[in-house]
Design a protein around this nucleic acid. Structure first.
Ligand SMILES: [Mn+2]
Ligand SMILES: [Mn+2]
Ligand SMILES: [Zn+2]
Ligand SMILES: [Zn+2]
Lengths: 147, 147
DNA sequence: TCCTTATTGACATTGATTCTCATTATCACT
DNA sequence: AGTGATAATGAGAATCAATGTCAATAAGGA
């Protein structure tokens, strides 16, 4: 891992190690502040700036995904190298709940690849990633509908 | 249209009409400030707050889509009722360029519907919309790669 | 161990979005 | 057309995520 860091022109430091370790252990979609706060218990020294800078670095390294959901703060999620970790999102527009789903149909993956190829050619684009999200009302919010 | 507004608990006002009219005429993905500035020429009276409030209203009405791309400002796009207007995005992670594409394969639409149905059932979700975006490097940015 | 310099953290600053509130304008009802 | 209740507005303040500044620190090659 130290090597991977160097590749991105960086020294391996304690804060970076702590943040990466923390991210790799959490499975949710966390805001920078949530990460900062959680980390603060064991690592009181780590500042907010470093959290942002490191998350940005990890995103560039491809170890973390940055999610923009339009609620005023970005969220970050660890991305295992393991392909089986790849997933898409189901987002509740009422309460913000995010569900990961990865029970893809084979068709789904095949089609994504086919579409990528088509778009890359037509628009002369290098396609590196994709986001697919379905928006709606979650189970809980459905329940507390009538007020 | 006036009726549609009322349905959403609203009076029809000059600023709202101006903003809706402007949005329906533009075909890009505009930030609130861009909308404010463009509008300011013909309607110097309209304030920033009203732009935000009206965009939010239009989004709730389903006339406008709010895009969160994680670059620190949301963008808004008019959504014609016309189904043929539906499209997905191709986004350059270097320069932010957004390309609409809508040459869907039939498969694509079929699959989205099938996936929606599957997810709705499994997670007990009411699915109302979806976003699909491909990220990468656009033609222009590919050109100015080596610096 | 020493030295260069990448990295850090405290703090300031920016900038998008939201809030506040006195003023204005819409529209239902005469 | 006139009136009144009140929804909506706009100027400015406030909030708050994210970025910038910079002196102090620490990583790691020599
Ligand atoms: Mn996820
Ligand atoms: Mn678009
Ligand atoms: Zn919900
Ligand atoms: Zn580009």
């Amino acid at each position: 891992m130290k090597d991977k860091f160097k590749e991105y022109a960086s020294r391996m430091t304690a804060p970076r190690e702590a943040i990466l370790e923390f991210m790799s252990r959490s499975s949710t979609h966390l805001s920078a502040k949530e990460i900062y706060t959680s980390l603060h218990k064991k690592h009181p020294g780590i500042g907010m700036s470093t959290v942002y800078r490191t998350l940005d670095l990890l995103a560039r390294m491809g170890l973390v995904t940055k999610l923009a959901l339009g609620d005023g703060q970005n969220r970050y999620e660890f991305k295992a190298k393991d392909k089986s970790d790849h997933h898409h999102h189901l987002i509740c527009t009422r309460c913000g709940t995010i569900i990961n789903y990865s029970e893809f149909l084979e068709e789904e993956l095949t089609l994504v690849r086919k579409t990528e190829k088509k778009l890359a050619k037509k628009y002369n684009f290098i396609i590196e990633d994709h986001n697919i999200e379905f928006l709606g009302i979650c189970e809980k919010c459905k329940g507390s509908e009538k007020i």
